[in-house]
């Protein structure tokens, strides 16, 4: 979709399709969010800049930005925003839209982790931590996986000792009682959300 610059098209899309997206128009470009983010130095665009880009109609650039994926939900930006924008929520909402639109950056570690986590969770309704960890280690190939596992060895051992990680989980692990009910619930939720946010 090509968007004419500084028209409402993309802003309107964000307002409709992104959680708390209707707040984007309220930003006054003070930049306090940008300076408040503890991970700020590590991403491409600051939140306030993302908001300006939305108003400027830069759909591709916004949705392919890595910025939303770097949010750790510390809420510093929300606390300080003089316009009370729920920035954290907007950033997550944008990330979700980007993902659904297939524009999220490839090989972005947070995005990858998110996908792994989700895939892991929906299988049984419980997070299988061992599989999740291994999945993370080996996402970049076998030899890199071994290296990662070795580097994290002491942490893993510690977790096992503290009974926070069960090696037996490799066999399949625990899950919720009514797995199919759980999955049906997720499906329905997704349907509702997709309908509401026009994500079909």
């Amino acid at each position: 979709m090509s968007i004419e610059k500084y028209t409402r098209n993309f802003l309107k899309e964000v307002e409709e399709r992104v959680e708390e997206g209707h707040w984007v128009k309220m930003c006054m470009q003070c930049g306090v969010c940008a300076g408040s983010c503890p991970l700020g130095a590590h991403w491409e665009h600051t939140p306030q800049k993302i908001f300006m880009m939305i108003r400027a109609g830069k759909r591709e650039e916004v949705l392919s930005s890595d910025s939303m994926w770097m949010c750790t939900s510390c809420y510093q930006c929300i606390v300080r925003c003089p316009r009370k924008l729920p920035i954290t929520h907007i950033m997550h909402g944008l990330a979700y839209l980007a993902k659904r639109e297939g524009l999220a950056p490839k090989n972005q570690p947070t995005a990858q982790f998110g996908q792994l986590f989700w895939d892991n969770l929906i299988k049984t309704g419980r997070v299988n931590e061992l599989k999740l960890s291994l999945g993370m280690y080996f996402k970049d190939g076998f030899s890199q996986g071994i290296k990662n596992a070795m580097a994290m060895q002491s942490v893993g051992m510690g977790m096992m000792k503290a009974k926070r990680l069960n090696p037996m989980e490799i066999m399949g692990g625990h899950g919720v009682k009514d797995k199919s009910g759980f999955q049906a619930m997720l499906k329905k939720a997704r349907e509702l959300e997709d309908g509401r946010r026009k994500l079909a």
Binding site: G31, V32, C33, G35, S36, G40, T46, P82
Partner: peptide, 20 residues
């Protein structure tokens, strides 16, 4: 809008933020 101020060892306030 300056995000926050910290103090360095010499008692200088250090301003953190982003020039927008």
């Amino acid at each position: 809008k300056v995000a926050r101020i910290l103090e360095d060892k010499d008692g200088n306030p250090v301003l953190h933020g982003v020039d927008t």
